[in-house]
Design a protein around this nucleic acid. Structure first.
Lengths: 342, 342
DNA sequence: AGGTGAGCTGTGCACGATCACAGAAAATCA
DNA sequence: TGATTTTCTGTGATCGTGCACAGCTCACCT
């Protein structure tokens, strides 16, 4: 362990360990990677030498040699707050972290808000610093997914991509069917003026949940009334805005299907402030079954997205791609969770 | 651009570019790193060759050669939600990202919740994958800071470390003086039963803000009443809990100094629910001047932490350390922002 | 005894870049 | 003009690993 001019230590190499242990580089390398074909005596000597020298592997050298980096990126291409305020995001992130941890792979969170960030991180990723990318919230116009895919970087996006552009792998919930189930539930409760707050229509989950809503109206023989539908942004504040518009445009509505729980919180709040009782006057159905759903009164009736399975599937597919296999899209079923709001 | 057996492209190297451009590797390398000592003709040829081959630098190889990785970690060693719900965190993170962007350095967010994560990421970092670490929220018992420091990794922590352990660089606000200013303001408003909700006493900002509070009580000749002081956790829910305890222990209190805005939101909410008017019955002073401070009624009187300067200073110090310089601790002044709550 | 295979070990090369160095060409100066 | 500097270029050597290969020892089997 030597000291360089500027006072920063120069870390020991595998060579130093080998010399210290009285064995060759190859033996040390074998010890570090699984430990097969290493005699007990050599093993003990190397263990001691590693401890004594304070050796840690140089990942640049290892990666250069193996072509792998043993790390994965979790890429966000929208303003931080949008994710951070969303309990679903936390669940998803934690799920992916834990699954990857089982393979001893660290997850690096990367935030790309500006175009400048986007370029910098794309370059960073394509230059090999991660083995693959988990991508959240790609707008239909977002070029990042296509760029990474074209660069040959293993990639799994969360949510079914909108534009039928490049053929990227994705994991999504059954948005259309889930929306159908929820609206069916609202109608079964006797509601007839059922409004909807959609997600952004250029984002995963936007159009499909709207389509499910229209499916059920048609099946029930109810007309589609544009005044009953408002586009939101998956944020709480967007839900509040949407609820105010709905009350103005269609004061007689008796139910609302809201395309995310976070927006639903905002909707319920505004409805209550306006003197409407939930669910007596207006039933509210959410989507996600996020932790926030039970944090308000009345507890939110919602469609559960299987976030555990989604994150597990995302990681599984990404690792498969990294291993050289091809993967396609996966759609997982949702489940109606009936609570008090509908 | 060849295709390997499993269908994954094998990326072009600097050698391919050199051959394509009809120059040597050295010339290509010089072109990539600043472009000095490259003739106009060679420059054009290399530019064209890079475009044609789709070359991107292999950062593992570069890092192995240079010893630098040109990336920095932002390390969080507490549960995600704790940061994500805090608007201050967003400001700080964005500030650091932007400052680093000016040097074209990507910021990698790393979350270490479990001990297992902590070990994995420490290993990842010490094995050279980042040039330095910005660390948030280190408890006094948290060994991460010491480990990284001992491993010789450039490191700057946010907030003044509690335990006088290792000598790590830090950037902090003037917690004690800021607390003094706020309590002085409350006393100047005629309040005499001034309570306090502290931060965790084993975290930066915890003990010092409490000390400032006691300073001012002493200066005003008021006794220190333990019933007026409750320890919080810097979270909104913790503020709510603390407020309920304060009301129970000291129903006659007429002011509260809360050690963070987020907790103050919770405190104000509980006080109002209990029928106390803010600021008429009870004045509330916060700390941070987070974006949340103006999101409630009454708008929060608070101590502004100069987050812009804090993030700028953290990045400056980290880059200085990476360049081989030594850095110490920096304390930046706070500023009283008088609004409606006190 | 001789052949076979498994366990273990060391050596050389490759990974893809940077960098120091030496030498050639062009520009400047006396 | 020749001497000197400046610009430009190509060639090893190097960074610290992993991996293929060859060789060596030892146990086991026929």
């Amino acid at each position: 362990m030597t000291t360089s001019a500027n006072g920063r230590r120069k870390p020991p190499t595998i060579h130093d360990v080998a010399r210290e242990a009285g064995v060759s580089r190859g033996t040390v390398s074998r010890f570090l990677n699984g430990g097969h074909y290493v005699s007990p005596a050599a093993r003990r000597a190397v263990e001691a030498a590693v401890r004594k020298t304070g050796y840690v592997v140089n990942r640049h050298a290892r990666s250069l040699s193996t072509g792998r980096s043993d790390s994965v990126a979790f890429l966000l291409t929208e303003p931080q707050e949008k994710f951070f305020e969303d309990p679903n995001f936390n669940v998803l992130l934690r799920g992916c972290t834990e699954r990857l941890a089982q393979h001893d792979i660290p997850l690096l969170l990367m935030l790309a808000e500006s175009d400048d960030d986007r370029r910098r991180l794309t370059r960073y990723i394509t230059s090999g610093h991660v083995d693959g990318v988990l991508l959240l919230s790609n707008h239909s116009g977002d070029p990042v997914a296509a760029e990474l895919h074209d660069a040959g970087i293993p990639l799994v996006v969360c949510g079914k991509p909108i534009g039928r552009g490049t053929k990227v792998s994705y994991v999504a919930a059954a948005d259309r069917e889930g929306a159908q189930d929820m609206v069916r539930h609202l109608l079964a409760g006797g509601r007839r003026r059922v409004g909807m707050v959609t997600g952004p229509l250029d984002m995963p989950g936007g159009p499909d949940r709207l389509a499910g809503y229209r499916d059920m109206l048609a099946e029930a023989g109810l007309p589609y009334d544009p005044a009953l539908v408002v586009e939101g942004d998956f944020r709480r504040s967007g839900g509040e805005r949407a609820a105010r518009r709905l009350l103005a445009q269609a004061p007689d509505l008796d139910a609302v299907f809201v395309a995310s729980d976070l927006m639903a919180l905002g909707v319920v709040g505004v409805l209550q402030q306006a003197g409407r009782s939930v669910p007596d006057d207006i039933a509210v159905g959410g989507f996600d079954d996020s932790p926030a759903a039970t944090a308000i009164a009345p507890a939110l009736t919602t469609m559960r997205q299987p976030f555990d399975r989604i994150s597990a599937e995302m990681v599984r597919m990404l690792l498969a791609q990294i291993a050289g296999e091809d993967t396609a899209g996966v759609i997982l079923p949702t489940e109606l969770v009936v609570r008090d709001s509908a």
